[in-house]
Design a binder for these strands. Structure first.
Lengths: 134, 134
DNA sequence: ATCATGTATATGTAAAATACATATAGATGT
DNA sequence: ACATCTATATGTATTTTACATATACATGAT
């Protein structure tokens, strides 16, 4: 994994000088995807994100709640309070058709992005193949 | 490509509501990579970026110049003026060892990121495989 | 009873990143 | 003389992100 490589130490580079894998921006498509599997609420979505494979650091809860509110404002999701069950009331979110559309757009965008990263990595590893033993 | 899918129109979603593929952040590792192939200067690096396969939109020249200055400030690159040749003087950049280290860190980070995107896409396409005919 | 912990949502704000506009200036072609 | 291309650079408004903090219900332990 990223932390364990020792490269940062070797070259005396602060960890923060290259993105650590938080991928906060990625929160939005994840939320949309989770909601496409069924209604849910902020706290639960947060734990799902947590298990989704974010390389590092827990997703920022502020990000989750604010993203959900943004998505609702724009009509990508709808919510209603759920007072049933134990504990404090939950705001239960559901995906709209428009939200489903946004998810598909995100998927296209992510696929494209993946290709760009792949292109970079291909060129990179081609150039350094001889240097990078191990 | 992204623009041509028609999804945005179908779902009445503004293009800006999902990232368009500018990937400004990606400029830094690209610059480092280009410089690992030999010294260069801002304007040339910009055109290289242009040809690198950014899905949309030209790279912001401000971003390129500011990133180069940042990299120099932090010791990842060094520069000197090149007054030889035609046209206005160029500031010629070269990668330092520390800069090479940062490039390798970026490569790790990008590889990790690619995996996360892949994971997302795999789950996504698994879920929507039946729905997404052509 | 009161205290810590877990569940749940929400906001305030400082700092960083980004987009977009604009400035400067040498060289070249018309 | 003027437009265009090459080349670097900065100003700044806006957006994004990180981090801290506030609220409050529920539950189990002391």
């Amino acid at each position: 994994m990223f932390e364990g490589s020792g490269l940062a130490k070797k070259y005396k580079i602060k960890e923060c000088e290259c993105p650590s894998g938080k991928m906060t921006r990625f929160v939005e498509p994840c939320l949309l995807f989770f909601l496409s599997q069924g209604d849910s609420y902020g706290y639960e979505l947060m734990t799902k994100l947590d298990n989704f494979g974010f390389p590092k650091a827990k997703p920022d809860s502020a990000m989750v709640y604010r993203t959900l509110r943004y998505l609702e404002k724009e009509g990508f999701v709808v919510s209603k309070w759920d007072t049933k069950g134990t504990g404090p009331a939950k705001r239960n979110y559901g995906l709209t058709q428009k939200g489903m559309g946004l998810l598909h757009l995100w998927a296209e965008s992510i696929a494209m992005r993946k290709q760009v990263l792949e292109k970079f990595l291909k060129q990179y590893s081609h150039q350094f193949k001889s240097v990078r033993k191990k």
